[in-house]
């Protein structure tokens, strides 16, 4: 499978190259005051807040819960899918959360429990929360940004990071 080997290799190269680019870009964002040699270097990734979204006891299968992360201007959805999925958390491994701003043009996605999908009324893009937000059909050039979740011993669910750029912001965490 020469073809597959090449693909894997190409993907790996692209990943490392991009990671390096992000790091370089981030370093360049430091505005270095001439009189502040003690300033610490800026981290390579944005610092995400850890935000409590809900407690596992509040969730029912296929009943979406609106959430906000990483701030009040970034709506998302917390879903208990009813079966274990890759990236799912909780004792059943079935809890996931996604941005609900369509990564095409920012229209609000809605959840259809019928086939467990998220759809956009703006231009009909569709995403699969059971498959990491894979775009089933549509116009975005990203799969749906997923909120990384952790669950503590009390069953509190926290969002701690995002895996794609959220629509409408050039930094996932906005600072004045």
């Amino acid at each position: 499978m020469k073809r597959c080997d090449k693909l894997v290799d190409a993907g790996r190269r692209a990943f490392f190259a991009r990671t390096a680019a992000v790091a370089a870009g981030a370093a360049a964002t430091v505005t270095m005051p001439s009189s502040a040699p003690r300033a610490a270097p800026s981290p390579a990734l944005v610092d995400y807040p850890s935000s409590k979204l809900a407690n596992v006891s509040e969730l029912q299968s296929d009943v979406p819960k609106d959430v906000l992360y990483p701030d009040a201007d970034s709506p998302g959805v917390l879903l208990k899918l009813g079966h274990r999925v890759e990236g799912g958390v909780g004792s059943d491994g079935d809890i996931v959360a996604f941005s609900t701003l369509c990564p095409h043009k920012g229209f609000p996605l809605f959840y259809d429990a019928g086939d467990k999908s998220l759809s956009c009324p703006g231009h009909y893009s569709r995403f699969d929360p059971e498959k990491g937000g894979l775009q089933i059909f549509g116009h975005a050039t990203q799969n749906l940004p997923q909120f990384r979740l952790v669950v503590d011993s009390n069953g509190d669910i926290y969002a701690v990071a995002v895996d794609e750029l959220i629509y409408g912001r050039l930094s996932n965490v906005l600072t004045a």
Binding site: R18, T19, V22, G25, A26, A28, L45, V46, E86, G87, D128, K131, G132, G133, L134, Q135, Q142, N143, L144, Q146, V162, D163, E164, L165, L170, S171, N172, V173
Partner: peptide, 13 residues
Amino acid sequence: MAYKRNIDRLPIP
């Protein structure tokens, strides 16, 4: 899992 870029910010023109 679906492909994700893990890019969380972009340079500003």
